[in-house]
Design a protein around this nucleic acid. Structure first.
Length: 667
RNA sequence: GCCCGAGUAGCUCAGUCGGCAGAGCGGCUCACUCGUAAUGAGCAGGUCAGGAGUUCGAUUCUCCUCUCGGGCUCCA
């Protein structure tokens, strides 16, 4: 056969000499395409442009403006990074370097256990630019396993990948393709060869819109049991404009960082004297938090929840029964031990066991005890108990992060006790309720994640897990939202749906969780009397909407970039007298607005008007009112809305209506 | 917990190759009384995160601890 026929995406066909490559195909179609082509997709599989095309294949050519080229450009850039590092650090070895969201990384081990410093990034980047300028080809070749081992004899992590890939480890297979017993490599120059399944762009000259970002430690293959490697992260894009836009997004995210805004807007802090991961809320943050909670409380009451309270500490026994001490002890603070005689004068310390008390890491056992405080009938169900419950978890020192990962938090925690028959209905109205409420806080772009049974850390039978997981799945699927699987991500006592929300700049946050639990009702031997007069076991549903009030607060700060909508803003109106002679009127205006329930501050004329306006704007106050002679005469104000145009001579009545409408509409 | 980096005034950050600690913003005082994003002058404010060591002398060099940041692992 001397000719092959290639099918193109537009339905047409192209006849080429046998042995033609993707590059030949692109050239046959057009000069420009040949220049812009980076890869081909052959029958759905991405391939090198240089790969020989099989007869009858469907081929799509990926160019440098094609979004599908992105991950390959990132992957190829990672290779250039590896080449630069291996050239700059003789004796260095390397592990894996995949593309990731927005960029890539590569893991290395430097000779003598050395590590990269931030300053090294500049040198490495300069070397990478030289390699890109040299326009080295990415040439693929394959070797049988023993020769591959020989070639990588100085690189133990590469060999480890070969071994693992032979065992069909998914991550290792992404590094080394052993499907036909041969290992593929890419050669860029005489001095640099990397084991890789590919494909790659034709040559390094096709790359260039990248930046190295940071150095980090990372365990080999993500396991704490493995050595820690030195990782370099970078970002890479198809054009300089895309790269610039991405860097700008990062800068925007940094400006919105709730830790920064928390200090600037005087919302909360983490006093070192208190301890890592333990926040205090300042008055301004306290107002926002109270408003968040008040609204949630009202909506929950309307939805049939009853409010309960439980203590922060409890005897060990409760968490033994619940299974927390068996399964969750790592996440709990160590116990306090109480000896009755400790505080009695004249009694030296007693030997022997005292009573252990634990800070609570979860609220569920308490709510269960409330359930169990009396005999329940099917008529009582579903029983919905809600608590703003403060819990404490011993988070490892490296993981605490602002308000989103803390050691002390308040969950908006509810437990619903229901019959098995009503579980599906309850779940479905619950999920609708949760999404509706999240929208009221300004988040409206969601997807769902379904977390299934953890592999090693779970109680209960497979059948119970299966049943609970299916119940959640069918509810999730009925919601008309994207559903992502999170295999093995459930809690030890049951599977969960979590609601992931995208914020104003497209980042996703895990918000609400809904978990089905067959275990705790068994462990605590919960029951209700059914209409048949028999004893039955209820199902328990755990759910939190904010997740934790602290985390949700942090997410809202970032979502709004600190500019809370009027209903949540700690100060809704700042009244500024033009001169001291207008002070009395300014206070009158403030008093009137406060009479309508608004949160108002007056800033007197000790500073210039311009400075006070600037300060109020910096605090992101929704409305700045300026009052001068004209306003005193006519009972009006100049209204300077956040993000809007100044209006003069607005009557107070008009302004009150406007602000009231903002608040009512949660704008 | 692990790897790397950082910690200097309330905040943002200079600085010291080991020799009396600096700026801007913010605070306070005084003057100015101003119509929509920084008026001027002055004053106060520091155990240079904490502890130990080296040294005539340590904010600076070494070690330990704490806290924070970026990651890994883990998670609401």
């Amino acid at each position: 056969m001397s000719e092959i026929t290639i099918k193109l995406p537009d339905g047409s066909a192209k006849v080429l000499p046998a042995g033609s490559s993707g590059h030949d195909l692109a050239s046959a179609i057009g000069k420009r395409l040949a220049k812009d082509a980076l890869l081909v997709v052959v029958d759905g599989e991405p391939r090198d442009l240089a790969a020989e095309l099989p007869d009858g294949a469907e081929v799509r050519i990926i160019t440098r403006t094609d979004e599908d080229a992105l991950e390959h450009v990132r992957h190829s850039t990672a290779h250039v990074l590896a080449q630069a590092v291996l050239e700059l650090w003789p004796g260095a070895t390397f592990a894996g370097g995949p593309p990731i969201e927005d960029g890539f990384y590569y893991d290395f081990e430097l000779p003598g256990g050395a590590s990269f410093s931030e300053d090294d990034l500049e040198r490495i980047e300069a070397r990478m630019r030289e390699i890109i300028k040299a326009d080295q080809p990415f040439e693929r070749f394959e070797l049988p396993l023993d020769e591959a081992r020989e070639l990588m004899s100085d690189h133990p992590y590469k060999q480890a990948f070969m071994d693992l890939a032979t065992d069909h480890d998914a991550e290792a297979e992404a590094e080394a393709d052993t499907s036909d017993g041969r290992i593929s490599f890419y050669r860029n120059s005489d001095s640099f060869v990397d084991m890789c399944r590919g494909p790659h762009v034709p040559s390094t000259g096709r790359l260039g819109h990248f930046a190295l970002q940071r150095v980090a430690g990372a365990y080999f293959r993500g396991s704490e049991d493995n050595p820690m490697l030195q990782r370099i992260y970078g970002t890479a894009w198809l054009s300089a404009a895309d790269l610039a836009e991405h860097l700008e997004r990062l800068a925007e995210a940094e400006k919105r960082d709730h830790r920064r805004l928390g200090a600037e807007l005087d919302l909360f802090s983490f006093p070192e004297e208190v301890g890592s991961g333990l926040a205090v809320f300042h008055p301004k943050g306290g107002i926002v938090r109270r408003l968040m909670e008040d609204y949630s409380r009202r909506r929950h009451e309307e939805a049939g929840y009853e409010f309960v309270y439980s203590p922060h500490i409890t005897k060990a026994n409760l968490f033994e029964t619940s299974g927390h001490l068996e399964w969750f002890a790592d996440g709990m603070f160590p116990p306090m031990e109480l000896h009755d005689h400790d505080h009695a004068p004249g009694h030296p310390e007693e030997a022997g066991e005292g009573t252990k008390y634990y800070l609570k890491p979860m609220n569920c056992p308490f709510h269960i005890l409330i359930y169990r405080s009396q005999q329940r009938s099917y008529r009582d169900l579903p029983l919905r108990m809600f608590e703003f419950g403060s819990v404490y978890r011993y988070e490892r020192s490296g993981v605490v992060h602002g308000l989103t990962r803390v050691r002390g938090m308040t969950q908006d925690d509810a437990h619903i006790f229901t019959t098995k028959e009503n579980m599906a209905d309850e779940l479905s109205s619950l999920l609708a309720f949760v999404l509706d409420l999240l929208r009221d806080y300004g988040l409206d772009d969601f997807y769902l994640e379904l977390s299934t049974k953890p592999e090693h850390k779970a109680v209960g039978t497979d059948q119970e897990w299966e049943e609970a997981t299916e119940a959640l799945r069918s509810v999730a699927e009925s919601m008309d939202l994207e559903l992502v699987m999170d295999e093995g991500g459930g809690a030890f006592y049951g599977p969960k749906i979590s609601v992931q929300a995208r914020d104003a700049i497209g980042r996703t946050w895990q918000m609400s969780t809904i978990q089905v639990d067959f275990q705790l009702p068994q462990r605590f031997e919960l029951e209700y009397i059914g209409s048949d007069g028999e004893r039955h076991r209820p199902i328990m549903i755990h759910r939190a909407l904010f997740g934790s009030v602290e985390r949700f607060f942090g997410v809202l700060v970032e979502h709004y970039a600190g500019a809370f909508p009027a209903w949540l803003a700690p100060v809704q109106v700042e009244v500024l007298p033009v001169a001291q002679s207008h002070d009395d009127y300014a206070h009158e205006v403030a008093a009137e607005l406060r009479g309508h329930g608004f949160r108002v501050e007056v800033s007197g004329a000790d500073d210039t008007l311009g400075k006070r306006i600037r300060r109020a704007k910096g605090q992101k106050v929704p409305y700045v009112l300026v009052v001068g002679d004209d306003d005193v005469a006519h009972r009006t104000a100049g209204v300077n809305p956040r993000g809007g145009e100044v209006e003069r001579d607005v009557t107070l009545g008009t302004f009150v209506d406007r602000l009231a409408a903002d608040v009512a509409g949660r704008n």
